[in-house]
Amino acid sequence: MVSKVLTANRLADGISVWLDASGNWVESLQEAFIARHAEAVAALEATGKAAFADNKVVDVNVVDVEEVDGILRPLRMRERIRAEGPSIAYAPGYHGLAGPKNFAA
């Protein structure tokens, strides 16, 4: 089956976060806990519902990912951009997805 991770936006600042293996919400997709079978996905979904109900995060979703050379890559571009930030140099010092983590293209 397709691997999955749990993602959301943090309530207080709205920043995109992913659930790691310790149950913490972290800002890097690469640190996310990967569910590779149905039971693990069910656990992710239950954790997401609880975190939403506990007012820690909003817009909670389980999303499909693949692992390429040890790097997690969401299947949908929407999720790739959520993980890496805008693909454009939007402000001084930001280089979009031009750096080594470029996987939006």
Binding site: N9, L11, A12, D13, G14, I15, S16, F52, D54, N55, V58, D59, R78, I81, R82, G85, P86
Partner: peptide
Amino acid sequence: RRLSGELAEDAFKPLRLMNGVYLQLHAY
């Protein structure tokens, strides 16, 4: 009240929208 958990998201969302606050991909 939202940050303290007194207001749930479903109740808060229309209130924040009335004040121009959306939730987008990366942030509010």
